[in-house]
């Protein structure tokens, strides 16, 4: 993945914060099966917010490193790992919003 790439969230997946739990709720047909729910940890929830179709991956990485006070390399590794998981379930797509 190129770090100058921009990703956007699938509009058919809604982020909700319920009783302190951050979750992704699929709302449209292809993702409507609720056998399983995805709950996000704090980092993942922040990455989901930052994937806004405007920021590049490099900008998101730098924001994470600053906010969580971790080295840039660590933030980059986590970002790319999570993004790969989100791409695998088609929750994000490359390109601006």
């Amino acid at each position: 993945m190129r770090l100058d790439a921009v990703y956007r969230r699938d509009p058919d997946i809604v982020f909700r914060k319920i009783s302190g739990e951050c979750i992704l709720v699929p709302i449209r047909r292809r993702v409507g099966d609720l056998d399983n729910i995805y709950t996000l940890n704090e980092t993942a929830a922040r990455i989901w917010e930052l994937i806004d179709g405007r920021r590049t991956l490099a900008e998101i990485r730098d924001a994470l490193a600053a906010e969580f006070a971790v080295p840039v390399q660590e933030a980059e590794r986590d970002l790319l790992e999570y993004l790969a998981a989100l791409r695998a379930c088609a929750a994000v797509k490359e390109g601006p919003a």
């Binding site: 399983n36 709950t39 940890n41 980092t43 990455i47 994470l64 998981a85």
Partner: peptide, 18 residues
Amino acid sequence: MAHSFFSETTYSDFSASV
């Protein structure tokens, strides 16, 4: 940072927890 970004939990477990 935590490395387990998101966990897949069954709907009934999630519902009970909430």
